[in-house]
Simulated assay, not measured.
Amino acid sequence: MRCPYCGGLETQVKDSRPTEDSAAIRRRRICPDCGGRFTTFERVQLRELTVVKRSGRRVAFDRDKLARSIEVALRKRPVDPERIERLVSGLVRRLESMGESEISSEMIGERVMESLKQLDDIAYVRFASVYRNFREAKDFEAVLGELEPRPDEDAETDELAATRRRVPSED
């Protein structure tokens, strides 16, 4: 493994352990040339994936790019980082398990939106606004119409409505 600081090729592994979900091995490394310390992750890769862009261009699938786009959608949302990692790992596993080596960017985007819709409504709308290239407010309205009320939200709405019926107006 090449040192990210000095480019040395003889780095040494000081510690290895599985990640929380045991989907990867975390390795702490040190470079004997410069003394730099860094972490690497080793994951199972079922097959090499190629992404077919809308323009027809083909690029290698980049797990980190997928993770960054999901993290941007989830920025400042109350979602545990480990849950985000599980979501990304699950998406990559599903893509690799499809049996195809070429996958359209549209399919990846739709899968991400499905996952975000289950995880966090705000992140889903954020991702959809970029992925679907929203241009007007009505584009947001259409996506918001796709969201289903969550069970706890229904209870809050019913409770609020009942409170309003019980409290006489002061008009």
Results as ranks from 00 to 15, higher is better:
43 R>I: 08
84 I>V: 15
16 S>W: 11
52 V>W: 10
26 R>D: 00
46 L>M: 14
145 G>E: 08
126 R>N: 14
108 I>W: 06
48 E>W: 11
54 R>M: 11
113 M>Y: 05
33 D>S: 13
51 V>L: 10
95 L>K: 05
86 R>D: 05
73 A>V: 09
64 D>C: 01
66 L>V: 15
141 E>K: 06
155 A>F: 10
93 R>T: 13
16 S>P: 06
113 M>T: 01
116 L>A: 04
130 V>I: 12
67 A>V: 02
93 R>G: 11
30 I>V: 14
32 P>Y: 06
120 D>W: 07
120 D>S: 02
127 F>C: 00
32 P>M: 02
113 M>C: 09
90 G>D: 09
115 S>V: 00
35 G>D: 05
85 E>V: 08
107 M>N: 10
78 P>Y: 09
65 K>C: 01
33 D>Q: 12
88 V>Q: 02
87 L>A: 04
23 A>L: 08
88 V>L: 03
63 R>A: 09
103 I>N: 02
113 M>K: 11
116 L>M: 05
20 E>C: 00
38 F>W: 15
104 S>W: 07
19 T>L: 14
91 L>F: 06
144 L>M: 15
153 E>S: 06
92 V>S: 01
121 D>W: 10
64 D>A: 14
93 R>S: 15
89 S>P: 00
61 F>I: 07
69 S>C: 11
72 V>P: 01
34 C>Y: 02
97 S>N: 14
30 I>W: 01
27 R>H: 08
39 T>P: 05
114 E>K: 08
137 A>V: 14
147 L>F: 11
19 T>Q: 03
44 V>W: 12
96 E>A: 06
42 E>V: 07
45 Q>M: 09
87 L>C: 03
149 P>E: 13
81 P>F: 04
142 A>Y: 06
84 I>K: 12
81 P>W: 02
29 R>F: 09
77 R>H: 09
96 E>I: 03
63 R>F: 03
31 C>Q: 02
25 I>R: 07
36 G>L: 00
138 K>E: 14
53 K>G: 07
20 E>D: 12
87 L>F: 03
94 R>K: 15
75 R>F: 13
126 R>H: 12
81 P>A: 04
125 V>R: 03
140 F>W: 04
126 R>D: 03
136 E>A: 11
113 M>L: 15
151 P>F: 08
47 R>C: 13
